[in-house]
Simulated assay, not measured.
Amino acid sequence: MGTRKTVTLHDLSAELGLSIQTISKALGGKPGMSEETRARIARTAYRRGYLTVAQARELASRGIAPYPTFQLRFALIQSRQSTNYNTLLAEGLRQRLELLDHRLECHTLDEDLSDSAFEEWMERISLPTADGLFIAPRLLSDTTERKLFGLSLPKVLINYPRPLSELDSVIWDVYEAVCMAVDRLVRLGHKRIMYVGDIGSQRGFARRWQAFQEMMGEHGLVCGLESQLTGDWDAETLQDKLEEVQPTAIIAGIDEDIERLFRNLDELGYRVPEGLSVIGLANGPVAAVPGLSRPELLIRETGYKAADKLLWRLANGSEPWEHIRIAGPFIEGETARRLES
């Protein structure tokens, strides 16, 4: 890697057509401009790799070189099953690493490989010579994940860790998101809340269900498994469960189910939110349901934090393992409303 050209306030001023004073105030968080101008300055500074003294000091305090002298190569291992949110995750990782002149390679592993085939696959993508490894959620099998855990590379798991896992982890906090969804519905007067979604095939899915049970219990509400829709379902099984349970609200726990749920509810004659409130754990905005009420899952931000965590681990190899959960705010939307008494 060549010598990095230092970006100055003069460079940013010339590119943006703004005064140095305005740019300095924006990056220092001082008033005197519109939020649109402040955001444009921040985006340009980020893209150009400009760091304020405070930002550089903050990175250095964690052992992360703000202006590294050589480029590191990192790998993200994912499955096709998770590409809908891994796009956001990879964006966060790549933006953060490229800011520091490092490189991210994304690789897909959708087969449960034998030991010899796994070794060949690693050699083909030059994984053993990578400087670090990010392991995305929803890999094909536990066996594949354990093989990646066993590699002698610095690594960050982007998922909830298994018990006794000896590695760092960072994850957008779906547990807190479900707790937030239940609490919001209860505060709107709902007591018959039905959970819709897989509760066991992935650790993140199991965490969602655990959160639903715990938060319903916190409010003294019944949440028996028989009152939820947790297996494979279609419009007919949804209708049967709605008639049986008669919920006033639904939490759709899995992103892939949300559009289908709203379509089926419409076909069955349920009006949202007039007849039934719905909160969904969407990975981002849902085009088919633009006003969805939802806890925001900070997937891109998780990528930023995971990149920082792996760079920190490279500089602090003997420090204890850390497990970080990132919670976002609640987006009110238009699909949940107060229950009429």
Rank of each mutant, 00 (worst) to 15 (best):
residue 95 Q to D: 14
residue 133 L to N: 08
residue 189 G to D: 10
residue 179 C to P: 07
residue 121 W to R: 08
residue 30 K to V: 05
residue 218 E to A: 07
residue 255 D to G: 01
residue 23 I to D: 14
residue 77 I to H: 06
residue 116 S to P: 04
residue 174 V to K: 01
residue 216 M to Q: 05
residue 63 G to S: 15
residue 301 E to M: 11
residue 210 Q to Y: 07
residue 202 Q to A: 13
residue 56 A to L: 02
residue 277 S to K: 03
residue 19 S to R: 14
residue 302 T to S: 13
residue 109 L to P: 04
residue 44 T to P: 04
residue 177 A to C: 07
residue 228 Q to Y: 00
residue 166 E to L: 07
residue 145 E to L: 14
residue 64 I to M: 01
residue 264 N to S: 14
residue 259 E to S: 15
residue 329 P to I: 03
residue 27 L to E: 15
residue 133 L to H: 07
residue 86 N to V: 07
residue 68 P to E: 09
residue 327 A to N: 02
residue 151 L to G: 13
residue 138 R to A: 10
residue 96 R to G: 07
residue 255 D to A: 08
residue 306 A to Q: 12
residue 155 K to N: 02
residue 162 R to Y: 12
residue 332 E to Q: 02
residue 13 S to Y: 14
residue 206 A to S: 14
residue 336 A to D: 03
residue 288 A to Q: 08
residue 17 G to E: 13
residue 1 M to N: 07
residue 292 L to W: 04
residue 50 Y to N: 12
residue 288 A to W: 02
residue 213 Q to I: 13
residue 27 L to G: 06
residue 145 E to C: 05
residue 211 A to T: 09
residue 159 N to R: 03
residue 57 R to I: 12
residue 247 P to N: 07
residue 261 L to C: 04
residue 260 R to I: 01
residue 276 L to Q: 00
residue 204 G to P: 02
residue 121 W to C: 03
residue 290 P to H: 01
residue 72 L to W: 03
residue 190 H to E: 06
residue 143 T to W: 00
residue 331 I to P: 02
residue 61 S to E: 14
residue 118 F to N: 13
residue 335 T to K: 00
residue 130 A to Q: 13
residue 89 L to C: 11
residue 59 L to R: 08
residue 185 L to M: 09
residue 183 D to K: 06
residue 271 R to M: 05
residue 65 A to F: 01
residue 83 T to S: 08
residue 167 L to T: 03
residue 287 A to G: 10
residue 303 G to F: 04
residue 122 M to W: 12
residue 38 R to H: 05
residue 323 H to P: 00
residue 253 G to C: 13
residue 186 V to W: 03
residue 214 E to Y: 01
residue 81 Q to E: 12
residue 299 I to V: 15
residue 195 Y to N: 01
residue 76 L to W: 10
residue 260 R to N: 14
residue 297 L to A: 11
residue 135 I to K: 05
residue 246 Q to I: 07
residue 104 L to M: 05
residue 181 A to K: 03
residue 69 T to V: 07
residue 298 L to H: 05
